[in-house]
């Protein structure tokens, strides 16, 4: 049962992201260039091999899915064209698309807002963190 579920999740993540994790040669360059490296429990190269191993639920439980800045550095600097950011994105969507699993809601905004903060920051955060 458990195995079937993680297989389905893996299939879903691969389809959403269009990523082929088996292209990865484990060089770690994506993680080396990731600006969120220090903040992540699992780093971009770990997303790649954990997805390959079907270890999706561990990733879904980790805060690391919220730490990606969508900077695409790992996409452009991967020598194998793996595009790890697309896996992080797919994993995050797997979490927030579940009912009641929004990571940020409109009620959280007043606490982070100041007079200068551009609309762009808010719409981006809402797009990344809530459904």
């Amino acid at each position: 049962m458990q195995n079937k579920k993680s297989e389905n999740l893996k299939e879903q993540v691969l389809r959403m992201s269009g990523v082929n994790p088996s292209k990865c040669m484990r060089c770690g360059k994506c993680s080396g260039t990731c600006p969120s490296y220090d903040e992540m429990e699992y780093h971009p190269h770990q997303f790649v091999y954990m997805v390959e191993n079907g270890d999706i639920e561990t990733l879904m439980k980790s805060d690391s899915v919220y730490k990606c800045l969508s900077c695409f550095a790992c996409v452009d600097r991967c020598p194998r064209g793996v595009e790890p950011a697309k896996l992080v994105e797919a994993l995050r969507l797997c979490v927030i698309r579940q009912k009641g699993k929004n990571h940020m809601t409109a009620d959280d905004i007043p606490a982070v807002l100041d007079d200068e903060m551009p609309q762009q920051a808010l719409v981006s955060a809402m797009r990344k963190y809530s459904k």
Partner: peptide
């Protein structure tokens, strides 16, 4: 051409400050 921290200004302002 490195990241400023982007929308992390909302989620984790300390990280945005560092970047």
């Amino acid at each position: 051409n490195e990241c400023c921290g982007g929308y992390m200004a909302t989620e984790d302002p300390a990280l945005a400050a560092k970047k």
